[in-house]
Design a protein around this nucleic acid. Structure first.
Lengths: 336, 336
DNA sequence: GTGAAAGCGCTAACAG
DNA sequence: CTGTTAGCGCTTTCAC
């Protein structure tokens, strides 16, 4: 099924058929109709590769992730696809699994496929070595940033997220606030802690960064840390956690020590990871960094760059607080 | 950067350059070297689109999911990419979000891009309307099956998974076994229940399908169902759940009613969803349907089909039991 | 208005 | 051994 078959069936030349199908040039309406009809009847679909060969654009982009398309890249990916798909752009999946060799192979492939652009995603916001694609096509980073160069990068607002959570806990009247989070080597963990600390300090509520309980991104750590925290500060009336998983553990730990949530201790998480946050009893108040929005923005920036605009540097997406029963006075603290 | 530039730089014709780069024909080693060197120096990467135009193959496939690339499609996708990526095949992401219009648009695009094949994934194993791509390229279904036609489909072994769980609970000496699962309208839920029921009945342990507690795929339902179950059968010594999320809820519910896990009641889930199963206290024994293996098989079948082999009909991937503390005598039933 | 022809980047067949 | 030519499917001048 080529445009030649269509042209033949409509009794016109391929040139005319092309014009008819693309709405170009000056054609008799009747001719146009005849061609369109033939194409329809034959089930003709233009070969985009051939089109791309001429036009220089392929209407494809690569989406490269180090995260095995996990919990963080997926929403980013969806947002990006949203922005790009609307522009009729198809997306190539490239999952490096954190292996530099795999990454290089993917980059080579993408270059050979003449993609119009590339989005690089990660699980961690730490700067990573920039991908090297020469000046062949624009690159946008999402949820990560390049160590070298000033290609655009879209990042979550971890610090702002921490501050927002702090404000909320202040707003509901809590003053003895603990913070339990992931490993200190994670920039995201440090930023969230900083955001919290600054806001509390600004409000005149005592909080020392030294009191932050750094550990792992796991429920188990949450359970353990809850004990440690109450040991040190038995009068704690709120805990902000660096992830929803940790918050789940903290919740279980606190309950095991006889505290009711939110009546005795208010509990807030981070990520708004639905199965975790909604499955908790009571459901978790949490900070949503709006991953999908990050992806959407990355997609839009990439489209702009492909269109010739120069976009440079970092950009941060505001976080959003999602209030649920774990910090709400009315929240029933059920049986779990 | 085209092959012409390379040819010019190496002082040969494009034809010769092509042969040199592809290892075809009879060439003086020195010429071959000169060309390769020039290509290297110029950073030449062949335009795969142009190659595809000649060869008729594009070395691309589509991966179409109705699941928004969620928890189930991702592993499947990774497995598929594994199988395909090795064959130098690039994968187009197509996320229909359960919208028939979107799906049709993606199919049109894939056809226009002349993909060599297509994998269709879903979140549910229920048969779905077959995708219509004429005889343009082969289609393989993974985690779902076509309502019409006999295109190959790779499915999890839900029934076998249920049976395996049953056997394990019998093996550890439990005889009064409850089953709490998702909505009855889910084929997967019914199959898991059937597998459990058959195995128990075969072993002479009483179990009526009518006693299955169908509900939702949520922790909340698990908590509620635990109460219902103990109300009816206070001497229950094991519960098999249709998902890890439900199992989490059931665990919390049982504990709230004073039961220890696994000492009083053994608890098994389904999915082996790491964050849920490992985060639980004690960690959950669960059934893994090996999603990644399903994807890998789908990829392999697709490759075979692209290669001209005819592959037809359903194929099931065995499930795997993952034993953890929630069904182990030695398991500590901690504080949560 | 429509057709013929050139050419996108590449490979394969055939000369030389 | 290497160069020339044709052509993959399509679009875009440029004649007629």
């Amino acid at each position: 099924m080529t445009i030649r078959d269509v042209a033949a069936a409509a009794n016109v030349s391929v040139g005319t058929a092309s014009k008819a199908l693309n709405g170009q040039g000056r054609l008799r309406p009747e001719t146009r109709r005849r061609v369109t009809e033939a194409a329809q009847r034959l089930g003709f679909a233009p070969n985009v590769l051939a089109q791309g060969l001429l036009g220089g654009r392929t209407y494809t982009v690569g989406l490269l992730t180090t995260d095995s398309f996990g919990r963080f890249s997926i929403p980013v990916m969806l947002g990006a696809e949203d922005a790009l798909g609307a522009g009729q752009i198809s997306v190539f999946m490239c999952d490096t699994r954190d292996d530099p060799d795999r990454e290089q192979r993917y980059l080579d492939r993408l270059i050979s496929r003449r993609v119009d652009g590339l989005i690089v995603t990660g699980r961690r916001i730490e700067p990573r070595p920039a991908v090297d694609v020469g000046r062949r096509f624009p690159v946008v980073y999402a949820m990560t940033q390049p160590l070298e160069g000033d290609d655009p990068a879209i990042l979550p607002d971890d610090e702002g997220g921490g501050a927002t959570a702090a404000q909320h806990l202040l707003d509901i009247g809590r003053r003895r606030i603990g913070h339990i989070t992931g490993p200190e080597r994670f920039l995201a963990a440090r930023k969230r802690a900083t955001g919290l600390s600054h806001r509390l300090t600004d409000a005149g509520v005592p909080f020392a960064l030294a009191d932050v309980l750094y550990g792992e991104w796991s429920e188990r750590w949450g359970r353990e840390a809850a004990r440690i925290l109450l040991d040190t500060s038995p009068d704690t009336d709120a805990v902000f956690c660096g992830s929803d998983q940790i918050a789940r553990g903290v919740g279980d730990g606190l309950r095991a020590l006889g505290r009711r949530i939110p009546d005795d201790v208010a509990l807030a998480g981070f990520d708004n990871w639905a199965p975790m946050a909604l499955g908790a009893d009571p459901p978790l108040t949490t900070v949503d960094v709006c991953l999908e929005q990050i992806g959407r923005l990355a997609g839009q920036h990439l489209l702009a760059a492909i269109g010739g605009e120069t976009v440079r540097g970092l950009r941060t997406v505001p976080a959003r607080l999602v209030v649920r029963e774990s910090t709400r006075a009315g929240g029933h603290s059920g049986s779990g």
